[in-house]
Design a protein around this nucleic acid. Structure first.
Lengths: 337, 337
DNA sequence: TTATATTACGCAACCGTTTTCGTAATTGCT
DNA sequence: AGCAATTACGAAAACGGTTGCGTAATATAA
């Protein structure tokens, strides 16, 4: 049994290769009768067209590249879920690449995309990314790039994001209204826009309630868990320690729980916590964690839907706009009230 | 600026297309000097070979298809992480497909793979899969398929799994030694081998301790969360209710916590729980959850490494064997001791 | 010196589809 | 009937690399 191609079908039916191809693609040039015969034989022989031949000829691959920092993360895995759902629906394939928060990885991946491997890219920046040259280079090669969550403002494209500023603002207000006099902001060192948005929302809430902001209010973490643990340990056992935390990174909230356990800090008695988080175990933590939940699945779906639309319409230019899908603040026992 | 192909390089250097191609692939037929020039120009012009042209001609795509039930799941996302790590290292690309536990989806995905889209497949079965015809059909087309975690025994291939039987056995013994007289097994309706392995391990522990097993000891859940909640609620408020649970599915443990909260069941006082789980929040749940943690990342890496090896060696036959990477039982406060 | 290897490159077929264009046969119109 | 339009198909040139084979030039051997 040698390989089953369009030629096989052509020979079998005494038709030309081009007729088969057109019949399979339901071209108006082919009679209904011929189409029927072709489809029937294709079905019978279990013919599947070679996607690479097709991609080569058509100069498109029906493939979307997804570039994210990590996959072991509720937010990103939910986003993938959304992207894949739309992709499958529209007949697209999804190539996944992880940057592991590393800029060089990100560059390498995008560089590879310049080959035409993917029709479009949906990405969320690595934490190290401070410059968009590699992204612009890709866009210059006519590959549409679309951001979600972690975006770069000086790249003109759609950015599917959530209302980070407002969420942080609302959450901080909640902390203050629940009695916090000294809420801190737990952050991660990066140039990510989402982090600064959240920080600004936090600051605004402080300001509105007459709480003075100082750099000491920001607890800066890194990618090093041990370092983070020590930083938090120090901060939470200091004299002027915080009585509330707004945690801007899901993973860090876990460390905070650990530190509190070790320091015997009572939540929410001694310390109230709100975290940006998509953990579906949040309500079973001890105590249940008040969260700002990002609509990760919807963000993924929306980003994919926009990308597909951009790919299907010819001459469709991706607008330079923010699509904002709001987050949800869910109050649980890690904060009072 | 029109498209940059091998022809562009050829013209520029007054060499033939084949010479360029060979130079780029570091063929021994090409002189060192020529190679240098070609590489230099390629670098300078930022040339990236078209992967689809190459795939078409070489009849391989350097792409691995990964088929899993879901991605919003610690186990599977960690496995993806492992797979992607090895793939990147070896120059492979990763196409992700989700079955959403649906057999028809799984069939459709594998059917598409018959086109040669991927060089090999790493998969974990959907819960609905009871028959391996679609998998065998793919293997018949010379596409190697390799299983991890959720495997099908009558398909002759490598299966990267963990020691489900022993883990369940050990965990159940732990429950019994911690005082459980009536430990139940929380399961999900499926034909998955891993589930029956776990059940067998559970049974063996019961038997060894003279506890009689009956069908009523198994709490069968489904994919319907509400149904599961009700089932568990009924079981946990019954007269002869369990005093211990071995939960075979990560997601179900969350529901159990919910039910216990609602029924005011104290853990571990009234009920002890051990769950198969890769949640890294396990130690912060209330109470911290005793878990059997599967080495998901290692499983992913191992599976990918074997796949790559199979793809690189010609005439390499994937052996019909189990590669077993043991799970780890981590005792926390949801069980006594 | 002549015969044989080796080196370094070009030619052209090929991978499997898509698509433009050409054309014979049929249909429609006046 | 005469001519234009339409229908249904085939030939062949792409798409961008890869590769087997041929060959001229150079190196090596006898």
């Amino acid at each position: 049994m040698d390989k089953l191609t369009i030629k096989t079908l052509a020979k079998e039916l005494h038709l030309s290769v081009s007729t088969i191809s057109k019949a399979l693609r339901d071209s108006h040039e082919i009679s209904a009768e011929t189409k029927r015969k072709v489809l029937a034989l294709a079905e019978q022989l279990n013919y599947t067209p070679n996607p690479y031949a097709s991609s080569l000829r058509k100069r498109k691959s029906k493939t979307i590249g997804v570039v994210i920092p990590e996959v072991v993360n509720s937010f990103f895995s939910q986003a993938i879920n959304g992207i894949e759902t739309i992709a499958k629906e529209k007949g697209y394939h999804v190539l996944i690449y992880l940057t592991h928060e590393n800029l060089d990885n990100e560059k390498g991946i995008l560089k590879d995309f310049e080959s035409g491997r993917v029709d479009g890219v949906i990405m969320s920046l690595s934490r190290e990314t401070t410059n968009s040259d590699h992204i612009k280079a890709l866009i210059d090669k006519e590959v549409p790039v679309l951001f979600f969550d972690r975006v770069f403002n000086d790249v003109h494209t759609v950015k599917v994001i959530t209302n980070d500023f407002e969420s942080a603002y609302t959450a901080t207000k909640h902390l203050i209204k629940s009695g916090c006099k000294n809420p801190h902001f737990v952050s991660i060192i990066s140039n990510l826009d989402i982090i600064s948005c959240r920080l600004e929302g936090y600051k605004k809430a402080l300001e509105e309630h007459g709480i003075k902001f100082s750099a000491a209010n920001v607890i800066n973490c890194t990618t090093n868990w041990e370092h983070n643990y020590n930083t938090l340990l120090k901060k939470l056992s200091a004299a002027k320690k915080p009585d509330g935390l707004l945690c801007s990174i899901e993973n860090l909230s876990i460390i905070i729980y650990k530190v509190c356990e070790d320091l015997k800090i009572k939540m929410p008695g001694d310390l109230q916590i709100i975290s940006f988080s998509n953990l579906d175990t949040a309500s079973f933590l001890n105590p249940p964690l008040t969260t700002i939940t990002q609509p990760a699945y919807e963000i993924g779906k929306t980003a994919a839907a926009i990308m597909v639309k951009a790919l299907e319409k010819k001459n469709f230019v991706i607008p330079d706009e923010n699509v904002i899908i709001p987050s949800v603040l869910t109050i649980r026992k890690s904060t009072r009230n």
